[in-house]
Design a protein around this nucleic acid. Structure first.
Lengths: 343, 343
DNA sequence: TTGTACGCGTTATCAT
DNA sequence: ATGATAACGCGTACAA
């Protein structure tokens, strides 16, 4: 009658080996390594012992022994934002399928914070680093960040950026420019001629691309009115309020560079006594879940966010260091931009 | 002129020590341990060397050397759901303040998957395990899960459950029962008398608590009509459709046990030609962000989700193994339940 | 205060 | 096929 390990102690490989009556090396082989090179009987004995002791290998120990981890480090701007949480969902799903563990850090829209995260993240020695929604465009930390990310590479890690292009790393982009252009053409085709654009500061690359893409899709109409504001619901609300104060004049439809801005704008219009869809058209970008639940339902450009997360992982696992995946988007016309009869 | 470590190699403490001309032990003390016991000059030398080499300590190595990690393992039902992503935001924020690393796993609404996750998670030897939105009520895996979680405890880890009570672990609950009762009283006070409840199967504890709480708040009115459906937007849509098909009869207001269900229900009513708020009142629970952006804006019960995540971390760090934090909720009446003049 | 040496749990190399 | 044993990178007694 053996009394096993001391109560309250987590069993180690050593305990399993002892329980199975084999050496620790054989136990290791039976559980993790090349199971082919171990006698069938010992294999079952070890497995039985592991099950009996409820043994789980110590990942950290494995990591330092093998010289590499099973970790993918995910950095997002804000988990609570449906945009990023959808990407995170895709990443975790793909990571699970690949048997990897996901660690998550939140950058809070701060480039400094982001740099700090990426720095300390190195301590984890992640196999893969995925950064979603960074705004490293034109920030003073840009160079340092690139440098820091290079180090992961030389250390054998993969770096993938989501929706951040022009950097020497694997990249998953969504076709912001093309999607906005397609939206512009769609709105033209159903009769709209006078446009306004609610956009964020151009240093935010996503906003700039969508803005420019929209302009490129407009032909033969007056220059749209551009209102700069925040990339948030509050920003959209504020821009709409300013537009109303200044006088709608002949603006027929507003394109907000993302859905939450568009939804905020709709609420602002309504607060000002205007009915979105009827008095003024509204379109967004992202096609977030609630786009179909607002009234009127929101015209938008559908972005496969979850797919973006999955693609990021796929890219990282492909070991193709600087490949780019561009995700297709699709225009979804809804009630917020009803067809407009020619004047 | 020294040539430092081989290019492409991640510097170790050994490299730092060599660069600074001290022993590994001194380098270790200077960077992490008791910095008091090292001469000022060596301290600066080591720090300079670490900075020059851009050294980051290998967390896995630290973990096995110290015998404990800096990891908090977060298990959520679905990251893409705003409910859980808000909790996750709170957890990551609090973890950051405590200098801990968050790993995230998604349980996909499956108790089996949840058990599997909790099992393999042990490999991480997390300091803290936080489980949000489990549905371990009455499932066959319940006992195994409890047993598994106990092991974390005996291994020196902390376990905290969010919105899951009656288990021998730290718990953060939201006052589902009380909040629903308060909502019921509020609706009574503005004139509603005939109710319907859209709820999920009672094995889902959250749904059951909200349902029962609502009933307990109703006095002197007919038994509400109860429609069982899924805990999702689609479930809400479906329940509303069924209610309409069956005939609204005298139902004046619907309470859906969460907001996404309520929003789905509103869309279903509208699809059926009814105007929510006017033809039928609708109320939800959670007060998710889009509650103010739907039309009519949704009456709900506000839940401090982010706070829940923060509280879970606080609880875990307090080392008070089985304490319970109950988060207060508050009724928010909006346009979806306009005051109803007495008949 | 500093350095030496051992231990953490695992994998991998090398004999056997 | 199996068992010693040397790594892996770090913390920390212990000795100096």
């Amino acid at each position: 009658m053996d009394d096993g390990p001391v109560a309250g102690d987590t069993p180690t490989l050593h305990d399993v080996a002892r329980e199975a009556g084999v050496s620790i090396a054989t136990a290791s082989r039976a559980l993790n390594g090349s199971a082919r090179n171990v006698r069938a009987e010992n294999l079952t004995r070890v497995r039985a012992a592991a099950a009996k002791l409820n043994y789980e290998p110590h990942l950290s120990a494995q990591a330092i022994a093998k010289g590499s981890t099973m970790t993918v480090a995910l950095v997002v701007r804000d988990v609570a934002d449906p945009y990023f949480s959808s990407i995170a969902a895709g990443v975790t799903q793909a990571a699970r399928e690949a048997g990897l563990i996901v660690t998550m850090a939140v950058a809070d829209s701060s480039p400094e914070r982001e740099l700090e995260i990426v720095k300390t993240l190195r301590g984890q020695r992640p196999r893969i680093v995925i950064i979603a929604g960074s705004r490293i465009d034109g920030t003073p930390t840009r160079e340092s960040l690139i440098e820091e990310l290079q180090e992961y590479r030389t250390a054998g890690g993969q770096v993938v950026l989501v929706s951040q292009r022009d950097l020497p790393f694997g990249t998953v982009t969504i076709d912001n420019h093309g999607g906005s252009a397609a939206l512009a053409r769609a709105l033209l085709s159903i009769g709209y001629r006078r446009f306004a654009v609610f956009h964020a500061p151009p240093s935010l690359r996503t906003s700039r691309d969508r803005h420019e893409g929209f302009l490129s899709g407009l032909t033969g109409v007056p220059e749209p009115l551009a209102i700069e504001t925040g990339f948030t619901r509050a920003g959209g609300y504020d821009a709409a309020r300013r537009l109303v104060e200044r006088g709608l004049e002949d603006v027929e439809v507003v394109f907000a560079v993302n859905d939450v801005m568009a939804i905020g704008a709709m609420t602002a219009f309504r607060d000002a006594g205007l009915t979105p869809g009827t008095d003024i058209g509204v379109a967004g970008f992202d096609d977030i879940g609630s786009a179909v639940d607002v009234v009127p339902s929101l015209t938008s450009v559908a972005v496969p966010l979850r797919e973006a997360g999955v693609s990021a992982m796929r890219l990282a696992l492909s070991a193709d260091a600087e490949a780019t995946t561009r995700l297709p988007v699709s225009v979804v016309l809804r009630e917020s931009t009803p067809p407009r009869p020619p004047a």
